[in-house]
């Protein structure tokens, strides 16, 4: 079980056609991510990082090659199956939090459970439990505008875990947060990764993130340039003091 691949890509290529110009964003990506790993994807903008990231999340389909999520070929899925996959297998965390502004923290967390067909009572119980776990047990009825950036991202983490997904995809989760809050979110993600054994894949520029990652994929010019294990990383980022 521990060695099972939760994400596997085989020679993934993606070509964007803009007018007469075709742009090869991904030039054959091969990677394997095991269940329970904490992965960071690094790369400069324009490297194809976001394209790869969207494909792993089932948000985009490759031009060529295969992507398997939980050993299921994503390209074979129809719209309903993709929605199902996004609802139950994958949790998303965004740079700008993306909470639904008209809903409370609790409603945001329970929305994916509603989509998954859970009864309202069960969803509320589970939602409160998740929000308590991320440290917002006393703020379940707050609207996003009444929460700080760090708190909003915590709600987003709880929402990503709503249907016990196999993968949590985090796109620059600390990008809009200050250092200390960013560190708290990273610690929270790491804790969830350990406790719930959920695979975490994040696209990031944040060196603090590398520090907790099991492996780091470096993407450049549409290819995996190198893969590093944490033990091999020579990081000296020091500690971050908040106050």
């Amino acid at each position: 079980m521990a060695e099972e691949n939760v994400v596997r890509t085989r020679n993934v290529k993606k070509v964007f056609i803009m007018g007469n110009v075709s742009l090869e964003a991904l030039k054959g990506i091969n990677l394997e991510i095991k269940r329970g790993e904490y992965i960071s994807i690094m790369g400069p903008s324009g490297s194809g990082k976001s394209t790869l990231f969207n494909m792993i999340g089932g948000l985009d389909k490759p031009t060529d090659g295969k992507i398997y999520i939980d050993e299921v070929d994503v390209a074979q899925l129809d719209a309903y199956e993709l929605a199902w996959l996004r609802c139950r297998k994958i949790g998303y965390i965004f740079q700008s939090f993306n909470l639904i502004p008209v809903m409370t923290a609790l409603e945001n967390v329970t929305l994916p459970m509603t989509f998954a067909g859970m009864s309202t009572d069960d969803a509320i119980d589970k939602g409160v439990k998740l929000l308590t776990m991320v440290g917002l047990g006393d703020r379940v009825q707050h609207k996003p505008v009444e929460l700080s950036g760090g708190q909003q991202q915590r709600v987003a983490v709880a929402r990503a875990l709503a249907n016990d997904p196999a993968i949590v995809l985090a796109d620059e989760p600390t990008g809009n947060l200050d250092l200390k809050t960013g560190k708290e979110i990273i610690d929270l993600l790491r804790k969830m990764n350990k406790e719930k054994e959920v695979t975490i894949i994040s696209a990031t520029h944040d060196l603090k993130m590398l520090d907790v990652s099991d492996r780091v994929f470096w993407i450049r010019d549409g290819k995996v340039e190198r893969v590093e294990r944490r033990a091999d990383l020579d990081l000296n980022i020091g500690t971050v003091e908040g106050e």
Binding site: G57, A83, W84, R86, C87, N98, L99, I100, F115
Partner: peptide, 12 residues
């Protein structure tokens, strides 16, 4: 963004 997010959460 709200609509995109909902779709990411599994909305059809």
């Amino acid at each position: 963004k709200e609509i995109g997010t909902m779709k990411c959460l599994g909305a059809l």
